[in-house]
């Protein structure tokens, strides 16, 4: 470790700690995966689509399933730090709060990305999915959309651990704000799968959303962390 830790080195260390904890306990990823699997199965009971139809609805189903599963993971992000007053220790330490926020966000990003990698094949199998548009576009949409979900989600999870009934609080504040991002990820995915429309407007919108909310989160995380 260098003499003066930088924002990035602290972020990396904190992230490594979170990943190691997750690797050993597998709390978040297991519950998230099983939850997403349940959602996919229940959806396929609810709708019985043909291949043509499934292209039109799969974008919506996939992202709604990811959104719900993300909430399961996000709820566990900060509760781990409440035990043994770890969060209070963070507050006392001179480490920049942004490093903590970034490491949590990147950690959640990785968890949700792994979830998507495992879930997409399931969708392809259960819904007989074949994309008309190019697959690399789907990849870009997935990266942008996942960041959009976890950046706000990590921030709002930090808000909701301070409230009564914190588990239910997170979706109540996260979903309304995320509506434009959801609209964008669903429509971009549907446009690519069906090949009917250009997804570029939605991809740009997602990128703008990511940049704006990453900036706002980094700016506002310090007062939220230190709120008494």
């Amino acid at each position: 470790m260098s003499a003066t830790p930088t924002l990035w080195s602290i972020t990396r260390r904190s992230l490594a700690k979170d990943l190691r904890l997750e690797w050993r306990s597998k709390d978040a990823i297991n519950s998230m995966l099983f939850f997403a699997l349940l959602v996919v199965v229940i959806f396929s009971f609810g709708f019985d689509p043909t291949a043509e139809e499934s292209r039109r609805i799969a974008g919506g189903l996939l992202w709604v399933a990811v959104l719900f599963a993300t909430v399961v993971a996000l709820n566990q992000t900060w509760t781990r730090e409440l035990r043994n007053q770890v969060l209070d220790a963070y507050r006392l330490s001179p480490a920049p709060p942004q490093a903590l926020f970034l490491s949590k966000t990147i950690g959640n990003f990785l968890f949700v990305a792994i979830l998507e990698v495992l879930m997409v094949p399931l969708f392809v199998v259960f819904y007989n999915l074949r994309s008309v548009g190019p697959v690399w576009q789907l990849l870009v949409v997935a990266l942008l959309a996942t960041w959009a979900l976890v950046v706000n989600g990590t921030f709002f999870a930090a808000l909701s651990i301070r409230t009564r009934s914190r588990e239910i609080m997170l979706p109540l504040i996260l979903f309304p704000i995320s509506i434009p991002a959801l609209l964008a990820m669903v429509d971009a995915t549907t446009s690519i799968l069906t090949g009917d429309n250009s997804p570029y407007f939605w991809m740009r919108l997602l990128a703008v959303y990511d940049v704006v909310f990453t900036a706002v989160s980094l700016l506002l995380f310090e007062p939220v962390l230190n709120a008494e």
Partner: peptide
Amino acid sequence: LVLRHYATGGQVPVLAAALGIFG
């Protein structure tokens, strides 16, 4: 408003202000 209702103690204003800006 839901957040304001459920948050407790002296931290409510900060949390609410952050959400107000996000909104």
